[in-house]
Amino acid sequence: MPLAACLGTIEEAWQTRARLEEVVSRLAEPEPPARAELLALRKELKNVEYAVGVLSGIVRERIGALSHREGDPADG
């Protein structure tokens, strides 16, 4: 997943979270959430999980690159 798509997924994660909240709130109702709805939600959450994983990987990579960098004047 490219970084832009990854950030886009994270930006949309609030909607996923709202849907999750809404699904949970309907659990106690007589008509529970449909399976198709839950499958779609699972797909979205997996995307978010994957995007967070990609972002973490990028940060880890940058940390690695920076660790090998020469010190700057501000570092004393």
Binding site: L20, V23, L39, R42, E49, V59
Partner: peptide
């Protein structure tokens, strides 16, 4: 620090995912 935040957040999302799996 950001990496730690992301990793913790990733785990929280996994919890949500487990819930949905359970419901399915």
């Amino acid at each position: 620090e950001y990496l730690n935040t992301l990793q913790a957040a990733g785990r929280a999302v996994s919890v949500g995912l487990n819930l949905v799996e359970y419901l399915i």
